[in-house]
């Protein structure tokens, strides 16, 4: 569906092996995947099928064992730790399955963190963080620490932290994994808005068909391989 040269992210025969020798386990067994700019893609599949593994590699948090991962044509697997960190810093926003917020730290400070590493001045950091929190519906919760927030609120702080830098790509690993359906739909609406209004490419792992319905394209993983990869018709949001 996308041309040879306009892929934003591209997997070429990516293999990821955990462990060595006898206990070695292949979590990804030669995955090919092309993602165009501005896409909203859902990744589905049974537990242990390698979804998180693929997301971590796409998010430049992990390196493939073999094969190539191209980010805007750049071979990520050839970059060193620091170069990958800089890719994360400037182009990627990652929403972790387990939130991964700093404990004993206010929502505001958590959201400001990526901007701090980008070296943005304090005034801009504060404003941007406040705005991002407002976008996820958390105005007025800035000074609350993670422990003082509900699961859904923490999830939204994590999303705010991922979008505060206006990343090129937003990767979300089961962003609605432990939320009730109302909250889940709210978050999906937000992701769709970000995708449509700001042109942010969104990659999302989910187990629920309800959620994947928001995506333009669904990739199914089974046993470390892409089993199906299909576009689906645009869906109207309320």
């Amino acid at each position: 569906m996308s041309g040879k040269n306009d892929a934003l992210l591209e997997f070429r025969d990516v293999v990821k092996t955990y462990g060595q020798g006898q206990t070695a386990f292949q979590a990804l067994c030669g995955v090919d995947l092309r993602i165009a700019p501005g896409e909203f893609l859902a990744v589905m599949g049974p537990s242990g099928s390698g979804k998180s593994t693929a997301m971590n590699i796409l998010g430049c948090l992990d390196a493939p064992t073999s094969g190539a991962y191209l980010f805007q044509g750049v071979h990520v697997e050839r970059l060193d730790r620091n170069q990958r960190a800089l890719l994360r810093r400037h182009y990627l926003g990652f929403v972790f399955q387990g939130f991964n917020l700093l404990s004993r730290t206010s929502a505001q400070e958590n959201v400001e963190l990526p901007l701090l590493y980008r070296g943005e001045p304090a005034a801009q950091r504060h404003a941007a963080a406040r705005q991002a929190l407002a976008r996820v519906g958390l105005s007025g919760w800035e000074t609350h620490t993670s422990a003082e927030l509900s699961g859904g609120q923490q999830q939204r702080v994590a999303i705010a932290r991922a979008i505060v830098t206006q990343p090129l790509v937003l990767l979300a690993d089961e962003p609605t994994g432990n939320l009730d359906s109302t909250r889940s739909h709210e978050i999906m609406e937000l992701l769709v808005r970000l995708n449509r209004e700001q042109g942010i490419t969104v990659l999302m792992v989910t187990h629920e068909a309800d959620m994947s319905a928001y995506a333009q394209r669904i990739v199914h993983f089974v046993d470390g391989m892409v089993e199906s990869d299909a576009a689906q018709p645009e869906r109207e949001t309320q």
Binding site: N82, A85, R88, F94, N100, S103
Partner: peptide, 18 residues
């Protein structure tokens, strides 16, 4: 606790030496 904290910082884009 700090290892997780370091993981978060690195994942967000901090460099090792930072």
């Amino acid at each position: 606790e700090r290892t997780r904290e370091i993981g978060i910082r690195l994942a967000i884009g901090a460099l090792e030496h930072e």
